[in-house]
Amino acid sequence: MRKKTGLGQKKELDAQLNLTPFIDLLSTCVCFLLITAVWIEIGTVEVKQSHGTSAAQEKKESYDLDLVFKDPTEMRLNLKKNGKRVKSFKVKDESFEGMLSQLNQTITGQVLTFKKKTIEIATATVTPRSTVDYGSLISTLDVLRKNKIVNIGVLTARGN
């Protein structure tokens, strides 16, 4: 489209986009991004082993939590202060998913608000069983991390 200016000269208003380098650039970008694309997001769940490690030295004088698997659908929670058990909770359900839900409710409702006071869990340790698979262990750690309990250790089970 051309438009007459006040001086009577014709001036081009439309800019022409050179399509060839534009498509070249887009193709190169698409190829590079497709090659470097990450389709599965790999993450990590950090575990600090608290037996004789630096994690134990960082422990504050607050409550600790022990989670002991009895079987995939039953677990016992021991709330400890200075190494002494102050309260024990039993978590059980018919399915593993139900047990996880119960665990979440117990931690939120009874552990983190112990004796109507908000408490801090310095460290949590999980003792697995051979009947519990690794995927279930990670799901249990997820429940703890969801409740902002991040100093987690996994103990070696003595009995099966």
Partner: peptide
């Protein structure tokens, strides 16, 4: 995901 959690715990130890 399907291996025993105790095996993982042993290796972690």
């Amino acid at each position: 995901r399907d291996i025993k959690s105790t095996v993982v715990a042993q290796i972690m130890g």
